[in-house]
Each structure stands twice: as C-alpha cells, then as structure tokens.
Nucleic acid binder design. Structure first.
Lengths: 204, 204
DNA sequence: GTCTATAAAGTGATAGAC
DNA sequence: GTCTATCACTTTATAGAC
C-alpha cells in the first residue's frame, strides 16, 4: 500500500469531510475537495456515503453532539453548587472549542440556512429541562427574589463563552490578536466568566 | 412600464443582492436568485456589476459599514461618561441589528471564509485607537487599579450584544422563542447589558 | 438598457473496468 | 473496494438581437 494516510478509506473520508464541511460550510464545499483532502477518489465518496447531503448530515449530527456530550453529567450532579456547575460548564466548552473552534459557526450557520436539514432531536432541551442545574437556578431566583431571568442567564453564559470563537477573525482585525494570544485569553476567561456571571446575578 | 418594483434596475439589483447574499452567504447564493428577486434579467446583473464577486464585494463593504457608521461620534463625545457611552453603543447596535439581524453572521462567516475577499480598511481600528472612549476606559483602569483588561471589556460588550442575534436559530430550538419574544428580550438587554458590564468592571 | 440564447466552466453522481 | 472516464445538470458569464 502506498497510502501514507491512516485508517480505512471510509474513516479517512469522514475525517476530511468533517474538516472541510466544518470550515467552509455545505454550499462552499465541493465533494472533490473532500476526496482530495482524504486522498481517495471522488467515486469512492459516493460509494460509501451515497451523496454529499448524506455525508453532510453525519458531520452535522456529530458536530451538534459536541455541544451535548458530557454536559448531562455536569448539569445533574447533586452535590455540586450552581457556581461549581458554571465553572465546569465554561471549562468544558472552552476546552472543547479550543479543539474545534469552527464548530459553533458551522452549526449555527447551517441551522439558519435550512432548519429542515438540521436534526432537531439533539436531546439538549430535554437534558436542560428538569436538570438539577435548572432547579438550582430557579431555587436561587425564588429565594433571593433576584431579577435574573433564566433565559438571560443562559444566553449570557453562552455569549461570553462561545462568541469569542465565532468572532475570532474579527478580533484578529480589531485587536491584532494571534492564535497564541487568543488561547491565552480564553484560558483567562475560563476563570473569569463564572466570576462575572456571579457578579451579574447578584446585581440590583 | 409594467414593472411594479421601484427604483432603477441597478438599485433594485443591489437591494436584492443585499438581501440574498446577507441571508445565504456567497457560496449558497446564485446570481439567478438575485436576478429573480429583483425582477430583472440575469444578463443585466453582469451588465451593471460585471461579476458575482464584484457585486458581493459591494454588499460586503456596505454591511461592514453598518458596524462603523455612527459609532465614531459616540466614542469621541467629550462630555458623556464611559457608562453613558456604553448605553449609547449597546442601544445603537441593538437597534441596528433588529433591523439587520443577519449581518453579523454574514460578515464574520465570509470574513473567515476568505480573509482576502474582505476589505480590511474599515477604519474601525483607527476609530477605536485614540478615542475618548478608550482613554476613559484606560483612565478608569489606572485610577482604580481594576483588573479589567480593555480587550476582555470590548469582547464582553460585543458578546452580550451581538451573539444573541447570531444564535437566534439555536435559541428558537432551546427556549422555544418566537420573533416577538426575541425582540422583547433584546429591548430588555438594551437596559441590562450596561448594568451588567458595570457590575463586572467593579468586581474583585 | 434590456432581453433571449448560448457558450464555457463547474459540480454531483454513476457506469464499468480492474 | 477502488479507480478512470463520463454523463447530466447547474451556474456564471457573454454574444448579439432589439
């Protein structure tokens, strides 16, 4: 075998598809790009995955799973406090996104493009609903009569954590930030975001 | 003339292009879509704008301008406080984005796709650098020895303001939010974000 | 300026040899 | 399974009539 790449052809195609689809999006990706990137032939892509769209749906589903994977345990841990859960969530997502920085852009962009192409049953809504995390949040709200709306709370958490990854090309322009500086900044934010959210919750 | 649409052909094409490009992105847009949406013929699009890419660059430049337009005066007002500038900035962007909700996704997505296709001289960096706003921010930092890094500060402001617009399709799924509920939420955030940022700045 | 028709190139998918 | 060659269709862009 003169192939340098590792893994079966099927796995190599999926690996290449993950990369190309996630970075360029469905429309901008040509099946030829994927074939070339995986070192196999265009015909083989269709042999294994039947069509561009079928292959895309697999990648989409896996990318969405990155947001759900591992979160369920954090949200339902009985012993940990709300603050501890926040720290774990932010840490989990920042670590994951440092490995897969293009995923949020991809998921949200394609979801907007064609809601039907998006597999709705990620299970995330069910994981959220009835979780210990949500109970703790609402208990705190009731007890202290805080104004913080759970939806604002969740959006703030996601915004402060996820947006920097999506806006990286813009931040590169505005703040002259290189990849190393970005990583350092996001490691700082792992510590800072829970503190900030906490301060927001206890304001007013 | 049996055309119902208003404006010159050239202006109608640009209007349609703005809509289609901004909502679907460069790759997913076909020049036929634009021609059809503007009620003119495909050939005329090339007659006026020479190519798909040339037309795209015009729209891109205009969309970027939406982020710069009107901000310069706010940032350089001598009388207003930092807090007042924050309130004005957040209000300005939320109002603008309620009118053009797809613009942030478009700009950031296409910027990532091909940095060269993006016109770098938006002037935003120059507007920021040396602004009264930045002076006030750094003065506050020096005087009170606050930990808040200006870059974190700017990213937080942008995250809390812009991210909800990009994540709308996701929020629709997670929180079962309709367009009306979204608008109400963003109007609330106009008031809340400056308060939150302020509380973050005075924490620790 | 505006149209129809068509050229020229690109792209997803398959047939068929090995 | 894996490849080359090719089909079928789409899409950008232009030629040329009006």
């Amino acid at each position: 075998m003169d192939k340098l790449a590792v893994g079966s052809a099927e796995e190599r195609i999926k690996e290449a598809a993950r990369k190309v689809f996630t970075e360029k999006g469905y429309a901008a990706t040509r099946t030829r790009d994927i074939a070339e990137a995986s070192g196999i032939n265009l015909a083989l892509l269709n042999y294994y995955f039947r069509s561009k769209e079928k292959l895309f749906e697999i990648i989409m589903k896996e990318n969405i799973q990155l947001f759900v994977q591992g979160v369920k345990e954090i949200l339902n841990h009985e012993e940990s406090s709300l603050r501890q859960k926040m720290e774990q969530l932010v840490g989990y997502y920042i670590d994951m996104l440092l490995k897969h920085p293009h995923v949020p852009m991809f998921v949200i962009s394609e979801m907007r493009q064609d809601p039907n192409k998006f597999v709705q049953d990620t299970g995330f809504k069910d994981i959220m609903r009835g979780s210990v995390f949500l109970q703790q949040l609402m208990a705190l709200q009731a007890a202290k009569k805080q104004q913080i709306n759970p939806i604002h709370f969740m959006i703030n958490l996601l915004s402060l954590t996820v947006f920097p990854f999506m806006a990286y090309p813009m931040m590169q322009q505005l703040f002259e930030m290189d990849p190393e500086g970005f990583k350092t900044m996001m490691e700082e934010r792992k510590q800072l975001i829970p503190i900030w959210i906490d301060s927001i919750m206890h304001t007013k």
